[in-house]
Design a binder for these strands. Sequence first.
DNA 1: ATTTATGATTATTA
DNA 2: TAATAATCATAAAT
Length: 345
Amino acid sequence: MDEQPRLMHSHGVGMAGHPGLAPHMQDGATAADGEARKQDIGDILQQIMTITDQSLDEAQARKHALNCHRMKPALFNVLCEIKEKTVLSIRGAQEEEPPDAQLMRLDNMLLAEGVSGPEKGGGSAAAAAAAAAAGGAGSDNSAEHSDYRAKLSQIRQIYHTELEKYEQACNEFTTHVMNLLREQSRTRPISPKEIERMVSIIHRKFSSIQMQLKQSTCEAVMILRSRFLDARRKRRNFNKQATEILNEYFYSHLSNPYPSEEAKEELAKKCSITVSQVSNWFGNKRIRYKKNIGKFQEEANMYAAKTAVNAANASAHGSQANSPSTPNSAGGYPSPCYQSDRRIQ
DNA sequence: ATTTATGATTATTA
DNA sequence: TAATAATCATAAAT
């Protein structure tokens, strides 16, 4: 970083310090001219090389001498004139950078994940979404979730410190370059437009670095999400109460264990899981029950007895005759054993 | 360390 | 298109 300004600096002095260059360029194309020009270029190169060897003080002194030269204002005006004539060709290269779609996507995602958003308020949209995606298993997901949040805030912290570092470096560099250009504008014509252009170039460079940071942050968040939120990878059993409710329904509807969409919704609500989780559970249960009925005999008896007790309690309590809408036992007493008239095929 | 249980996913079927 | 059957990946039990 330190070498750069000095080089540019010296360069500026070097250019201004060689008015002898001009006459040669304007000469006609004689035979000897080629040789002379070669010699000239060699000369310039030599000068440049020696400039880099000069001490800073030496260069400073030389610059000062140049600035005080009596011909300086006149030469400067000439330079300005020449520039006026040539600057038009540069104007054409004014490309307005379109707002990068990729960058916007990254920004949106970071905002949505709560990385670049406001500081850790519990009610970030991402946290809520994550909670919903994790399935409302209530008790157990809080520990897991705090882990997730901790990792996320770690990512956020790294992201912010890095971002700040880049921003600071960018500003530093920009002011450095601007100062340099302002300084040089005393010896060569530099319009504010050009400074602006330079600054925008610098900003583009730095924003491409920022983009990399954002990209890798996004990746990290995605990995974190998939590790913590992908229910398949980190399978959590439903809590005891939920499986109880589901089993109760299953065994009390053993003759037709296909809950309607409505029933599924109610079960989902009672178990605080999603409807599709209810569907999964019944799908798994049906196939596994069918595959090995013997294994489930005990469980079946248990739940049959349970619903019987529930029914008894309910009827003893007063009005209703039966709590399940379609109990599998016709006679009012649940059959504890396997029935052959199941309709699972 | 292995085995079993279990929630989710995927391919197949009717 | 929902149910089934097979399979995956992990939790829990042994």
